[in-house]
Design a protein around this nucleic acid. Structure first.
Lengths: 342, 342
DNA sequence: ACGTCCGGCTAAATCGATGTAGCATTATTT
DNA sequence: AAATAATGCTACATCGATTTAGCCGGACGT
């Protein structure tokens, strides 16, 4: 059960391991190996179903054909779907994926990077947490291919693929305004990261453009790591504290879900007493009664773009003149449903 | 940026790499390395933040500290949540996880096993597809630690962790019967695998025990790989074809979701005109109006059990006398909600 | 006829960690 | 005092693939 090695092939073909290596790596021409020998080796390799030992190869070349995928929470629908796309796309290029969830916790994220580093992944797709910029820079200066996703660091010149969060939040809020809602709140995560900042900015810009007064009491920021119960309590406390509140924009999918729960436990009728828009599409939003309007992300496009960029980086990071960092911003789609229609 | 190697430590400590290796692997005593030297090496290792190169170690020892996780679909809530648990548990033992989705396609599964094999994962957690038994046996005879999950092969003596699917389906169906539903159908996946068979068996046993006639027209089996549209169409066709149908049991979470959609598109009132029970819990089931009764799986327990078994296997598969295969069957919980209450 | 070139291939070093076999040196036995 | 044992450490081969440097024999040039 030891697996076929290059030596076995060499022995059978009556040549040296070197020759076999050259042939199997497509360097036959370059290394002037005769057609005869070349074909013979190919044939034997296929017959024995030779698969190079990735560890040995990795040890020698420093390449493991593995990418590290760091998400916020693999159990979250958005990231799980993204992981699927990344898996599929990476597979097309012969790469496998090691994943890890940060729980939006910087220490956990650092730990993951540490582990992925000494596991020698070739490249990274990272959903960064707060203060992870130092580590990102370290990776960059070590010339490790890397793409950020979902959020980025404005002061850092890196590849990233994100949603136009500003636009998404703007459209969501503008839509609520156009529907005649007057007092619109936002529930978001207590985070200064770009995705949340932009969603907040989009929100307040839309209010401004629709001549709706904005003030801090309309903004609720909740910590990421609450359990369901606490989310529920906090939401209820907030929702009941805003006078004449008639609509809410939830800035992430899990906030939306918790929000729906909270609102219903208050006995408020969604879509009538209170308008509602969520973030990311979800079976629940589609099938809830009433159905929930949401800002939907093009997950497939995000995943493809991520892997594309990473592969390009991987395929010529060979001391080339630092290709320009790609900053991809994809457009959201506002899916209008009943929770926000008057 | 090359990373600290054992040689660097050796040089600094003025000893040989061998000694360093002994010390860092806790074999100082056994190999009679003096306290002095031992401590010195430890100190230097910590100072330099030495992390062993897993590739080199793996090449030498054959162990990669990586496990392969093969699921049906990482984007599915059940498997994504499972993946999270597995990630966390594996991490506690210093293992990382490589994942892959089969899409319930045997060829894809074989491909994944192939890749994981030559990536030399130390052990496998596998959601098997139809006809994957040959490959599983091959792995077993190669003494690769492996645990099946969600389903198993009855004729194969292997570790597995599954739900008591029979019980789950039985309780679900019995519950519907006790609520007074008379004509209960099941929608399941066209698969002969254990999980589906047992769900079907539990279903028909419950009907029998409640003196409800059972016949094939009450069973709809759909192929796994339909898209949403087709699921919807097929469901509608089926639901309208059964005369006097008053309740349906959906045997997987995605069937339940598609089923809810189909039923609503028919304009039927869930819980009134038609009773409904789903499989696996889901935000949608909890928050749907009416809320959806379901058979819930103890995902955390499943994941823990999987990793536990695998770790035990990994930690003394050293030529020991083939420990008995563990067959863990966990109990489901029927969460009764409004979709099935009369 | 002798040097040069080139086609065709291989020896050996290398990546980093492990582990067997064994070498000095000191301590103990008889 | 010679033989044996214990102590403390190291040389070297190994895992499998890659890659540099270079060997050997024949063709070619002058």
């Amino acid at each position: 059960m030891k697996g076929i090695s290059i030596k076995d092939i060499a022995k059978q073909a009556g040549v040296s391991p070197t020759t076999v290596s050259f042939v199997l790596n497509g360097k036959a021409k370059e290394k002037r190996i005769s057609e005869q020998v070349s074909k013979k080796i190919q044939k034997i390799a296929t017959r024995l179903k030779y698969k190079p030992n990735q560890l040995a190869r990795g040890l020698r070349t420093g390449k493991t054909k593995t990418i590290g995928l760091i998400v916020e929470d693999i159990a979250n629908n958005f990231f799980a779907t993204l992981a699927k796309v990344v898996e599929d796309e990476a597979d097309k290029h012969g790469y496998k994926v090691l994943y890890g969830s940060t729980e939006d916790n910087t220490e956990k994220a650092k730990g993951l990077l540490e582990v992925l580093k000494y596991r020698q992944v070739d490249g990274y797709i990272i959903t960064p947490t707060k203060n992870l910029d130092k580590e990102i820079e370290l990776l960059q200066s070590a010339a490790k291919p890397l793409v950020l996703v979902d959020r980025y660091f404005p002061h850092l010149n890196s590849h990233y693929v994100v949603l136009n969060n500003y636009q998404g939040a703007y459209e969501a809020t503008a839509h609520l305004a156009k529907q005649g809602y007057k007092k619109i709140a936002i529930v978001t995560i207590a985070s200064d990261q770009t995705q949340m900042k932009e969603r907040l900015d989009g929100f307040s810009a839309a209010l401004r453009d629709h001549k709706i007064p904005f003030n801090k009491s309309l903004v609720k920021r909740l910590p990421f790591d609450l359990d369901r119960e606490s989310f529920n309590n906090e939401m209820r406390k907030f929702l009941t504290s805003v006078k004449d509140l008639d609509a809410v924009f939830f800035a992430t999918n899990y906030l939306g879900i918790a929000g729906i729960e909270a609102i219903r436990s208050l006995g408020w009728e969604i879509g009538k007493q209170i308008g509602l828009v969520g973030f990311d599409d979800h079976d629940l939003f589609r099938l809830h009664s009433p159905s929930i309007t949401c800002v939907s992300q093009p997950i497939a496009a995000i995943g493809k773009s991520l892997v594309d960029i990473l592969m390009k980086e991987l395929n010529h990071s060979a001391g080339s003149p630092a290709s320009p960092q790609k900053q991809v911003v994809l457009e959201p789609e506002l899916i209008i449903r009943d929770s926000s229609r008057r």
